[in-house]
């Protein structure tokens, strides 16, 4: 199957029912997208499909047909970080960082929906992303920081 990943057309040998996560990680070596639960409950595997956040562990390849897939690796352009990444870096959000890619991708999607989100909109939208290190308030801070710039 042909996929559009981070602006590049790529062919996958996997069957259409394969999870997008496994293709990204194991076939394309785009390991920035993480496995956290396999049930769409933790958000670590979040990528964008035409700018919308999806859980790649629960997304079959067939569902990506004709859509633009953006992973964490696709945010940085020629060494320049996406404003959301900049904001996360500035706030120095993370501890173990395993949830980072999913948080950043969800934030990009959030700001696509709500350029100036309220605290409630942030918490609603981000509630599907788990951080066991408990960085949530720092993430909210980074999101507000990014919203001011995006």
């Amino acid at each position: 199957m042909e996929l559009q990943v981070n602006g590049v057309k790529r062919n996958s040998k996997a069957t259409p029912d394969s999870s997008l996560l496994s293709v990204l990680r194991d076939e394309f070596d785009l390991t920035g997208t993480k496995y956290g639960c396999g049930e769409g409950q933790c958000g670590a595997c979040t990528v964008l499909l035409d700018g919308k956040a999806v859980r790649s562990c629960r997304t079959p390849l067939s569902a990506t047909q004709g859509k633009k897939i953006t992973t964490i690796e696709g945010l940085e352009v020629k060494g320049k970080l996406h404003p959301v990444q900049e904001a996360y870096l500035k706030v120095d959000v993370f501890q173990c960082g395993y949830c980072a890619s999913g948080m950043v991708m969800s934030t990009v999607a959030l700001l696509n929906n709500y350029p100036n989100p309220t605290e409630e909109q942030i918490k609603d939208f981000m509630n599907g992303n788990i951080c066991r290190c408990g960085t949530y308030p720092r993430i909210v801070k980074a999101i507000n920081e990014a919203a001011a710039k995006v």
Partner: peptide
């Protein structure tokens, strides 16, 4: 820190 927000850091599973 930059390695984590860019997805570049290689955890064991990566």
């Amino acid at each position: 820190g930059r390695d984590f927000i860019t997805g570049r850091h290689k955890y064991v599973s990566d």
